[in-house]
Amino acid sequence: MKNFIDYLAELFKDKNFLKIVHITENIVSKILSLGIIIVIFVCIIDLVFILARYVFVTGELGFFASTVFEIFGLFLNILIALEILENITVYLRKHILQLELVLTTALVAVARKIIIFDPKQYEKIDLVSLGVAIICLSASYWLVRKSNQDKLDKNH
């Protein structure tokens, strides 16, 4: 029992504990990367099947008129998943969360909502809310970008 307590005491020293945290972060990041890669490929397969169904099965003329927003949404879902994968990849490389990249991903996600926005399904206030979100995210992105640029200018 004493050996076990000594082992735990050694394990929980700052240096050793931080090493365990670092290893855990790496493992979780890699699992998330694999998961998002699977999601990306499933989304691509889904998009191919949907496009094939509309082009070859339904054969409707002007089918894009009714489904263009759905198809755009699927493309943007894949783009958002790629952005999330990039966030995870940067974290694995540098072990930091890049706020600029996170804000870019959020901007793409909100832009997706605006692009596929159906005014028949939602209230006008919902569109206004999305607009406010875009303005806030854009301002945040600009501030972070400017701050990063100022730091680079001071260092050179």
Results as ranks from 00 to 15, higher is better:
71 I>K: 08
90 V>C: 00
49 F>I: 15
39 V>G: 02
49 F>Y: 12
34 L>R: 01
72 F>M: 14
32 L>W: 01
64 F>P: 00
30 K>C: 09
27 I>L: 12
54 Y>R: 15
22 H>K: 14
20 I>K: 10
87 N>Q: 03
74 L>M: 14
35 G>H: 02
42 V>N: 04
81 A>E: 03
85 L>M: 06
43 C>T: 07
43 C>I: 09
33 S>M: 08
71 I>P: 01
36 I>F: 07
26 N>S: 09
48 V>A: 15
28 V>C: 06
40 I>F: 05
82 L>G: 08
74 L>C: 08
39 V>L: 07
42 V>I: 15
48 V>M: 12
85 L>A: 02
39 V>F: 13
24 T>W: 11
34 L>N: 03
41 F>S: 04
76 L>P: 01
43 C>E: 12
31 I>T: 08
94 K>T: 09
21 V>C: 00
39 V>H: 03
91 Y>C: 01
86 E>K: 12
48 V>D: 05
31 I>C: 00
30 K>D: 01
49 F>T: 13
43 C>Q: 12
35 G>T: 05
57 V>G: 11
30 K>Q: 06
59 G>N: 14
37 I>H: 03
70 E>D: 10
70 E>G: 13
86 E>M: 09
90 V>R: 00
93 R>L: 03
66 S>L: 13
74 L>F: 10
22 H>L: 10
40 I>L: 07
71 I>L: 13
56 F>I: 14
44 I>M: 13
82 L>M: 11
50 I>A: 10
65 A>Q: 04
60 E>W: 09
75 F>R: 13
67 T>K: 13
42 V>G: 04
55 V>C: 11
25 E>G: 02
89 T>G: 04
89 T>F: 03
51 L>V: 15
24 T>M: 05
68 V>C: 06
49 F>Q: 14
20 I>M: 12
60 E>V: 14
47 L>F: 11
32 L>A: 06
41 F>W: 10
36 I>S: 00
24 T>N: 02
37 I>E: 03
78 I>V: 15
54 Y>W: 11
33 S>A: 05
32 L>T: 05
27 I>C: 05
75 F>L: 14
77 N>W: 08
59 G>D: 08
63 F>R: 06
62 G>E: 06
93 R>F: 01
32 L>C: 07
85 L>T: 02
45 I>W: 10
24 T>A: 06
58 T>A: 04
83 E>C: 08
24 T>D: 00
61 L>H: 10
37 I>V: 07
52 A>V: 13
62 G>S: 07
72 F>A: 12
46 D>T: 14
84 I>P: 00
82 L>R: 04
25 E>D: 02
92 L>E: 01
94 K>V: 09
67 T>C: 08
44 I>Q: 05
28 V>Y: 08
43 C>A: 12
